[in-house]
Structure formats: structure tokens, C-alpha cells
Design a protein around this nucleic acid. Structure first.
Lengths: 350, 350
DNA sequence: CGCGGGAGTGTAATGGATTACACGACCGAG
DNA sequence: CTCGGTCGTGTAATCCATTACACTCCCGCG
């Protein structure tokens, strides 16, 4: 394939001038510019980015690392990341770790190999210290999920407030035995949802009952299994509402309720988290907490590029507070929630 | 960061020797090897792949281009692609076109810029000629969907046979008014499903009724809209079974049936295509045609790398038949299908 | 008329790794 | 002892584009 030398020869100028045309430098005469453009056209020349990137010592590639990029929740986030990256002239390299620390290490190794300039971590597997060490060499940003102790910026919603809103809504419908299906996880973003759940119970003057909190994972089967246990309790102790840590878990809970002969929402209300597409496809449509997914991705990229550029100019202040951002969430009320049987909504409460 | 020069200096050998150690050449004395390894360790050296790739004139990167990578159907395919690519020392760069020809062009442009060595196309937007022209410069392979006239290899299931199996099963249950919800599409892989549907009707001696075939897209809403139209017909002309071009369309059809006061499968049987995770999460669980998704991805990469290597050795035979491959599919019978009301299964037919 | 300075262009160094070729040391065969 | 060959290693060219620096014109001002 043609190189910049070929273009230079064909248009009768030096490679420097061709390069200047390529990069839009103003110090080129219109005639030279035209001749170079014509030669590029005639030769079907495309700059070899391997050469350019080597010279510029950057790859203009951003890593997007997640347990599973295809997880429906991440769909919109990734879209936001890609769009923002392209707008800034970067490409996004999507990486699936399948929660495997080694696979993640391979991907993050691309930073040291200069195949990528920075990374957005959607579900980090490494520990906080390792993340900080890596971040000292190459800018990182955590998005949606993040590790508690790591001094690496993160972009999320206020998960505690989001959970509080969801459970407050259930309490407002008149529910008193509200269960929660949590996930066992290292992520602070998820763990504080339990705090939000408790906040709302406190507000409503409902005593905490640890037996109403079940722990599993984020998936359909996890949700189903956890819900089976909670719904197997005697009717007087059985929760009349379940707040679930994800929409997939909520779908599992609905399946469990059906299998237990209970109807949703008449016998049990179910609230999810994430607002994935599936939430409106199943029956009943899911009440859930929506996160601004494309925005989460977009802002994460903005933070990352800000750091990348700051670093390129030699600044690495070190101890400055990492720039972390919360974006607004929203409770979407649909058909999987209703007042409990034998207890209308508490209209009287202000 | 440390370069190969630094390692050479620190270990008292030349860069050539360091490079040989890096690449596992046997022509290095054990002592030199050890010293180099120690220096690499001490300096925390990682080879700069921008330099290596420039020198080798390859990027070891494979493009994976789809309308939407996050589409649940592609999840497993992408997983297969990634796994196979890594096994061969390649990275997969996932690209979303959102069905936008321009965005696709930008991604495919990365081939000419040498940021990627080849591409797997999951839902090509360009036309057959353009694809062939591009393929002449850089190896491509189509996976799952493919264009009719393009002399570019593809890896799929036998979509016609798969559709035939699904509809044959419905006919076997005793259905005679079997509708199909198709997608308007440029893809041959999808279009031949209509042929398979007709094959099965012919086999069962059922006359074709064009009014029973509706056209839409691949999504939930498309499926719902199309099904609303088919199910609005008077009961005697209404289809008792619907074969849908995708699981999402089938989900939409089920929603439409419910809204029309019909129950699935008692009043209408519904069959999907793809067997995405959602197929077993909803109610009822979906009868559908499963594709071996990771295998489709794996084989696509194998074909691609075969071509890449052949091309690297200077061979480009030109007019040889493109290597296209069909992988086996499977009908998964679940709960969304049953014999029609007022007509038991046709047990007597052999 | 001489000189400072900007515009336009070219030469060559540079980024980091790979590898063809060359060279010296050393071995065994004749 | 000499020659051919292997082994280990180094030098320098190479991949392709960017850019610091130098240079030539040419203009306008004093």
C-alpha cells in the first residue's frame, strides 16, 4: 500500500509537506495542498496509524473492561462510552473478563504495551491497591461499579438514595414486610443499596428484619433462588414486597413468585434496578430504578480524557481528591408494584 | 517508560539479543537470557507494541462489526469470537454501527489505517460490491447474517432448514393456519427463513396464505405491531400459530396476544428464533430455534485467520470459491407451543 | 540598499522494535 | 594445522509518520 513517501514523490513535495497537509497545518501553500490532495486521492493513500501512533506515543484507544460487555445493563453505558470516545477521536476497545482476574490482567496489560491510553472499568476484578498502582501509570476511571478504598475516580448514580427512593415508594404503598434481594459483591456501588433500603425502613418506622434480606448474585437464577427462600416463609411472615438488586434478579423473583402460586403484584410487589429493556418486555412490566446509562458512559470518558490530557502535559498532582461524579437516577413506576392485600395505600400520611 | 534500549544497556547486551529473548529465539546463551530477563524484571519493561506492530506491519487486532454488539443474540457469538481470537494471539475490537453506513465506514477504515488486520461482519451495512472490494485488500468474513451476492465467506446455520424444522413442528402439532412474522432485511440468512417456512407448509399440504405473513424488524415492538395485525383477523382466519424471525419478535407477539385477550399457547402457539437468555426468563418459556453461538464466532475467526495467513504468504488465488460454513442448529421445545384448540395432535400421521 | 522577519518548504532525527547480515570464537574433521 | 561450520552476538537498516531545525525567498521598513 502507498506510504507518505509515495504521496510526496507523486506530488513533487517532501514528506514534511504531505504530513502538514494531512494534519491541517496552515503553513502550506494552496497549490501544494491541492497537489498533495490529488496525489492522495490518486494513490488511495491512507496514513498508517501504526507509524503515526508510534511517533506520537499514543494509541487513541480506550479500554472498556467489564465482566460481560453483553450484559444488558451495560448496553447503554457502552453506547455512551463509544459515542463520547469517537467524538474526541478515540476508539473504544471492548473487553470481557468473565470475572476472571487473569483475563482482566491481560486486557489491562494492553495499557503497558501502549495499545491503549486509558481504561474505563465497569466491573473491576483487581483489588484497590493494584488499581491505584495501575492508575499511577495510566489514567483509569470506574463507571457504575467501583471499589471502596481505591483512590481512582468513579462515575455512578447515588445508589443509596436510589434504593431509598424505591423502598420508600413500597412503604408508601402500605407495605410493612419489605424484603431485599442483595448481591454478594465487592462493589461499594451495590453495597450501599442495602443502606438505602435501611434508610427507607427507618423513615417509615419499620423494624429491620435480617430474615427478609437474601444474598445472591445479579442474575435471573440467583434472583429466583433467593426469592424462593423468602417466599417459602409462612404467609404471616412472608414479605409482601421485594426490592431487588437488579432487573434480572427481579425477573427471577417474579418467576419464583409464580411458581409459589403467588401473583405479582397482587400478592407480592417486586421492584428491580437498572431498567434494562427486558423490564418492559415481560409480564408484568417491572417497576424499577433507571440509571442514565449513556450519560454514565459519556461522563466516564470525559473524566478519563481530562486526566489523560492533564497527564500528557506532565501534571500528576498526586494527592488531589479523585474527581468522582454522581448522576441523577429515576424511579420508573410500572405494573409489578401495588398496595399489599388487606391494606390500602396509606393516603393519610403526608 | 523503559525501552528495549534500556534493557539492553542494563543487561550488557545489544537490543538484538533482548529482542531474541523477547521472542523466544533459541540462538541466545542461557547466561544472556537470564541477564536480560533480570533486567526486564528490574525495569518493569513491557515491549511497546506500537513499535513491534509497525515493524511487523500487522496489528493483531480483529474488527467485530455489528449493528449493535449488545444485541442479546450476538452476546454468545462475540464471546466465541473473542475466545478464538485470544487463543491465536489476536484482540477483538468490538464496533457498533447502529445500522449507520457512515459509522460502519469509519470502523472499516481502520483496516486501511492498519489498526486492524481483518474483520468479522455480523450485520454488514455496505453493499456486496463494496464488501468485495474491501475484501480484496483485507480479509473479511460474514457471520450469522450475510449478503446474497457477495463473494466473501460466511459462517451461519442452515437457516432454511432451521425454519423448516420449526414450522414442521407446528404442523405436526396439528396447526393449519400458521403465520410468520418476517423482517424486512437485506440479509440472505434471514430471508431464506421464509423459504423454509414455505417448505414446511408444502410438506404438510397446507396452502400458502400471503395474508398470514407480516413484515417488520427484529425487535420487540416490531413483533408486537406485526402480531397485532395478524391476530386482529376474524377467529376463523386468525393464525393459531406464529413463527417469528427472532426471540424478541416472539416476545412482542406474546405481548400482542395477551393484549388481544388470547392466551399462549392455548389460543396461539409462538415460536422464536435465536434462543437468547430472555427466551427462558419470560412467561411462557419460548419454544425457539437455537444457534450454536460461540461456535459461529469461533469458526468465523478460524476462517478469517486462515485467510489472513494465506494472504500474508502472498497467496490470493482470486477466483477460488469462498469458504462458507453451515453449523448445526437445534429446535428447543418449551412452553409457548401446543396443539391448536379443537384439534389434537395428528398422531396418525407417520 | 540592507536587514529583520514571515511564509513555505525540505532535511534529518525521532519514536521502539525486528531482523538481515556480518563477525569473532570455537569445534571437529581431514 | 587448516578449513568449514555452528553458535552467540552485534551493527545498522527498516517499518511509517511527525516535527525540530534550517534554509530560501520575498516583502517592507528604515
Amino acid at each position: 500500500m502507498a506510504t507518505i513517501q509515495d504521496v510526496a514523490a507523486k506530488s513533487g513535495v517532501s514528506v514534511a509537506t504531505v504530513s502538514r497537509v494531512l494534519n491541517g497545518s496552515p503553513r502550506v501553500s494552496p497549490e501544494a495542498r491541492d497537489r498533495v490532495r490529488a496525489a492522495i486521492e490518486a494513490l488511495g493513500y491512507h496514513p498508517n496509524l501504526l507509524g503515526r501512533n508510534l511517533r506520537r506515543t499514543e494509541s487513541r484507544m480506550l479500554l472498556v473492561v467489564a465482566a460481560s460487555i453483553e450484559n444488558p445493563f451495560y448496553a447503554g453505558v457502552v453506547q455512551g462510552i463509544e459515542a463520547a470516545a469517537h467524538r474526541e477521536g478515540y476508539n473504544a476497545l471492548l473487553c470481557n473478563t468473565d470475572r476472571d482476574l487473569d483475563r482482566e490482567a491481560i486486557y489491562l496489560g494492553m495499557l503497558d504495551q501502549r495499545l491503549a491510553d486509558g481504561a474505563v472499568l465497569l466491573s473491576p476484578q483487581l483489588d484497590a491497591r493494584a488499581m491505584e498502582r495501575l492508575d499511577a501509570r495510566h489514567p483509569l476511571v470506574q463507571c457504575c461499579e467501583y471499589l471502596d478504598g481505591a483512590a481512582v475516580p468513579h462515575v455512578t448514580v447515588d445508589n443509596r438514595a436510589a434504593a431509598r427512593d424505591a423502598v420508600r415508594y413500597l412503604a408508601g404503598l402500605g407495605h410493612r414486610r419489605i424484603g431485599m434481594i442483595m448481591a454478594r459483591t465487592q462493589y461499594a456501588a451495590t453495597r450501599v443499596r442495602l443502606d438505602g433500603y435501611r434508610d427507607a425502613l427507618d423513615e417509615a418506622g419499620i423494624a429491620h428484619d435480617p430474615a427478609l434480606v437474601a444474598y445472591g448474585g445479579f442474575d435471573f437464577e440467583n434472583g429466583r433462588t433467593a426469592a424462593v427462600a423468602l417466599l417459602a416463609r409462612p404467609p404471616a411472615q412472608r414479605p409482601t414486597a421485594l426490592f431487588c438488586v437488579s432487573d434480572l434478579v427481579a425477573a427471577g423473583a417474579i418467576r419464583a413468585a409464580r411458581e409459589a402460586g403467588l401473583s405479582v403484584p397482587a400478592d407480592v410487589s417486586v421492584v428491580g434496578f437498572d431498567d434494562i429493556e427486558y423490564a418492559t418486555m415481560g409480564e408484568p412490566r417491572l417497576t424499577t430504578v433507571a440509571q442514565p446509562r449513556p450519560d454514565l458512559g459519556r461522563v466516564a470518558v470525559e473524566v478519563l480524557l481530562r486526566r489523560l490530557r492533564a497527564g500528557a502535559e506532565g501534571r500528576s498532582d498526586g494527592t488531589a481528591e479523585p474527581e468522582s461524579i454522581d448522576l441523577p437516577h429515576a424511579l420508573r413506576i410500572r405494573e409489578s408494584t401495588a398496595p399489599p392485600r388487606n391494606a390500602g395505600p396509606r393516603e393519610g400520611t403526608p
